[in-house]
Amino acid sequence: KRPVSAMFIFSEEKRRQLQEERPELSESELTRLLARMWNDLSEKKKAKYKAREAALKAQSER
């Protein structure tokens, strides 16, 4: 099983909040919005998710 990506971790963290704030969005619209949010995120903020990705990857390799 492959470890999850930093973007996937970000998306899972933000998805529920966005669904509550924007219930009119379809699943595909929500996914596009999350992708745009990820792309607009600064490298400094992405680092938090990339660190979690690395930790999960290291854990799965044990």
Results as ranks from 00 to 15, higher is better:
residue 1 K to I: 14
residue 2 R to D: 08
residue 2 R to W: 02
residue 3 P to R: 09
residue 3 P to G: 09
residue 3 P to E: 11
residue 5 S to N: 15
residue 5 S to C: 06
residue 6 A to T: 02
residue 6 A to G: 12
residue 7 M to Q: 15
residue 7 M to F: 14
residue 7 M to G: 07
residue 7 M to I: 06
residue 8 F to M: 14
residue 8 F to H: 12
residue 8 F to Q: 04
residue 8 F to P: 04
residue 9 I to L: 13
residue 10 F to R: 00
residue 11 S to T: 14
residue 11 S to Y: 15
residue 11 S to I: 14
residue 11 S to L: 12
residue 11 S to N: 03
residue 12 E to S: 13
residue 12 E to A: 09
residue 12 E to I: 05
residue 13 E to M: 07
residue 13 E to T: 06
residue 14 K to H: 15
residue 14 K to D: 01
residue 15 R to F: 08
residue 15 R to D: 00
residue 15 R to Y: 03
residue 15 R to L: 05
residue 15 R to V: 03
residue 17 Q to M: 13
residue 18 L to H: 01
residue 18 L to S: 01
residue 18 L to M: 08
residue 19 Q to C: 09
residue 19 Q to K: 15
residue 19 Q to E: 10
residue 19 Q to F: 03
residue 20 E to I: 08
residue 20 E to V: 11
residue 21 E to G: 06
residue 21 E to L: 09
residue 22 R to Q: 11
residue 22 R to L: 06
residue 22 R to P: 00
residue 22 R to N: 14
residue 22 R to T: 04
residue 23 P to E: 02
residue 24 E to K: 05
residue 24 E to Q: 06
residue 24 E to D: 15
residue 25 L to C: 07
residue 26 S to R: 06
residue 26 S to P: 06
residue 27 E to V: 05
residue 27 E to W: 02
residue 27 E to F: 04
residue 29 E to H: 04
residue 29 E to F: 01
residue 30 L to K: 08
residue 32 R to Q: 11
residue 33 L to S: 05
residue 33 L to C: 08
residue 34 L to H: 00
residue 34 L to E: 03
residue 36 R to I: 08
residue 36 R to N: 13
residue 37 M to F: 04
residue 37 M to G: 02
residue 39 N to M: 10
residue 39 N to P: 01
residue 40 D to M: 12
residue 40 D to L: 08
residue 42 S to A: 08
residue 42 S to I: 01
residue 43 E to T: 00
residue 44 K to G: 13
residue 44 K to E: 13
residue 45 K to C: 14
residue 45 K to F: 08
residue 46 K to P: 00
residue 46 K to N: 00
residue 46 K to C: 01
residue 46 K to G: 00
residue 46 K to V: 03
residue 47 A to N: 03
residue 47 A to F: 08
residue 48 K to L: 08
residue 48 K to C: 10
residue 49 Y to V: 00
residue 49 Y to A: 00
residue 50 K to L: 13
residue 51 A to T: 12
residue 51 A to H: 07
residue 51 A to M: 11
residue 52 R to Q: 14
residue 53 E to Y: 07
residue 56 L to H: 12
residue 56 L to Y: 09
residue 56 L to Q: 09
residue 57 K to Y: 06
residue 57 K to F: 11
residue 57 K to M: 09
residue 57 K to A: 10
residue 57 K to T: 11
residue 58 A to E: 10
residue 58 A to F: 13
residue 58 A to V: 14
residue 60 S to F: 15
residue 61 E to A: 11
